[in-house]
Design a protein around this nucleic acid. Structure first.
Lengths: 125, 125
DNA sequence: TCCTTACTTTACCAACCAGCTAATTAACCG
DNA sequence: CGGTTAATTAGCTGGTTGGTAAAGTAAGGA
């Protein structure tokens, strides 16, 4: 029984679960609707299990409508995760990607005014 | 052997590892230096293992200086994780927290001009 | 009442993860 | 060389995870 943040990150550490969240971003859906794209890869109980992980992490809430369980995305735990990441925002912005890093070592440190346009610029908003 | 994003989130899904990253944010450190705060809770091989997880996720790079292994933080994988989260930025901003949500249902939808100051505002940057 | 649809639970398996102790490698230092 | 320090590796255990098949629950409808 780990802490909330760990459970959130743990829930995100699976491509199937991320895909389920992405699907829910488009709107609520029942379990079978959610499972449908994955049924070639895995069985329905498998999807149910993934959903339970997401539910325990608080990322999904399951409703109850007759025999259907409409699932809803809940981003609140994501906020905490994003807030944790924000502590690293500064060094993320500072660090260029590998290519940029390499170019930085090759080119002289007269960096801020390159020849014409800097392609490794303007990422993230 | 999961995908990169899964390995990143998985590496973050442990408070010890997050603490190691937080420590590295202050600057490089050797394994024993990193381990020191945790040695009451766990042994050194335990910390080594956690570091290996972080290394495999590309979040930490280990150098080699005589018998020391200076560790460096590498935020590049974090950028991908942050970019993934950005897809949910809109609904994160839209959704207020549980309290806010509740207040929203109680108060009329004349929301955008609250009485005086909105406390659940101005988070994130 | 019985069937169908929707979904969950149970029981099992293999793989992995977190932790330990003990042993090993590797480098420096006297 | 022998000892000390730094760190890893090996081998074990117990718990969790991801998947399955098969059985079970619950509601709607003929």
């Amino acid at each position: 029984m780990p802490d909330t943040l760990s459970r959130t990150f743990s829930a995100l550490a699976d491509p199937t679960r991320r895909a389920l969240l992405a699907r829910l971003r488009l709107g609520d859906a029942t379990v079978t609707q959610l499972a449908e794209p994955f049924l070639t890869r895995m069985t329905l109980p498998g999807v149910t299990k993934h959903l339970k992980v997401l539910e325990k992490a608080g990322l999904v809430t399951k409703g109850r409508e007759a025999q259907w369980r409409p699932c809803t995305l809940n981003v609140v735990p994501l906020k905490d995760a994003a807030r944790w990441m924000d502590a690293y925002r500064a060094e993320m912005d500072a660090s260029l990607d590998r290519l940029g890093e390499f170019l930085k070592t090759v080119a002289p440190p007269a960096a801020t005014t390159p020849t014409s346009a800097d392609p490794s610029d303007d990422r993230h908003r």
